[in-house]
Amino acid sequence: MYTASSHASPATTLPREYVHKAAHSEVLLTGWHRDSVDAYTVTAQWPRTHGFYRPARQLHDPMLFVETVRQTIPLLSHVAYDVPLGHHLIWEHFSFSLAPESMRSSTAPAEPVLHVSCTEIERRRGNLAAMTLQVRAERDGQHLGTAVARFTSHSPAIYRRLRGAYGDLQQALDSARPPAPGVMAHQVGRRLHEDVVLAPTRENGRWQLRVDTQHPSLFDHPVDHAPGMLLLEAARQAAHATRSPRPVTAIAMRTRFHRYVELDAPSWIQTSPGSTPDSLSFAVEQDDAVCFSGEVTVSACAVTPQLGLIPTQRVSSPGLTRRDLVSGL
């Protein structure tokens, strides 16, 4: 058991159950310690290549940063706030912003450090009910990015009541629709067809969500709905598809989770112009209801003799205040 002062070796990872992963290879976090009341430092190691979040254009995948933050949520919930293993942690809103120059990949694994402040803490009958994580990350002493995540915590009994007819995991998986044929991988910034989460439609800027419950990373462990990381990946891929064939990278998002995306019905993602020329708004709908929405900011890539294709712009950190019902971590 890890205590408030414990540190894991940079060469090792934390127990997989603390970050809600089934495969050891999916664990990115290596250690943590408490700095002060509700303030923590979390360390991570990014592999030179990942089974799903692979480097591209000599840059680490931005979603690798997102997954690192996501793993920090259950870690601190369990080790610092006494949330029992088996409780369900549900996203309400999430935002991030990256410094692209700090995302360059190299021959050595990257070792980001996350400085985390836990705020807006709510308890119910002495147990953690909700919390916001404010994250500031650095790599090799340089600014890497920021993130804000708001989530709620529910016991298994409460979660089953919230999910109603969808609370039976096996039944939800058995009723899942087969994944629709995807778009061409290169259109969404992917190399492998099995990593594509969008299927084409006859409308510009609109795709069907492609949900493969057998995907080894997005469905590392079985869940009864489309996981939050799949929805975030869909937003990223939709931005790539909208800008295709122009090479871009996603450097910021601000998102809200409104409803669960179920596995037994088709869902759709639509993009539209965002608040700036470099951003796109998006919404995921199912049964005529918005389940997930937000804005993604992309950076065009320019060629440099030393580094190949790299992003050419930076953005400031996005902020969110609204609290909505979300998707599972």
Rank of each mutant, 00 (worst) to 15 (best):
T255H: 05
R323P: 04
H215L: 01
P55D: 02
R160D: 13
H115W: 03
T30R: 06
T255V: 00
R104Q: 14
V196A: 06
L59K: 11
T276D: 09
R314A: 15
R259V: 03
F96L: 07
W268G: 05
I310N: 14
R16Y: 04
R190W: 03
V37F: 12
L231D: 07
Q58I: 07
A239H: 09
V211R: 08
T43D: 13
R236W: 09
P100A: 03
A80E: 06
Y18T: 13
R191L: 14
H50V: 09
R125I: 11
Y40F: 06
A108H: 12
D38M: 08
V188Y: 06
M131F: 11
I90A: 12
Q237A: 09
S293N: 05
F257R: 12
A157G: 01
A302E: 15
T152W: 05
D288E: 15
R54H: 15
H115C: 11
Q171K: 14
H143A: 15
I310Y: 12
T152K: 08
P55C: 09
V42L: 04
D324M: 13
S244N: 04
S95H: 06
E26R: 10
D220W: 02
G141P: 05
C301V: 13
D224Q: 10
S77K: 08
G274C: 11
S95V: 08
V183A: 00
M253E: 09
G145Q: 03
T119A: 06
F292W: 08
A130E: 00
W207D: 01
P222N: 01
H221I: 05
G182I: 00
G51P: 07
E120H: 08
S102M: 09
A137N: 03
M229R: 07
V116F: 01
L76D: 01
F219K: 11
I158R: 14
H240I: 01
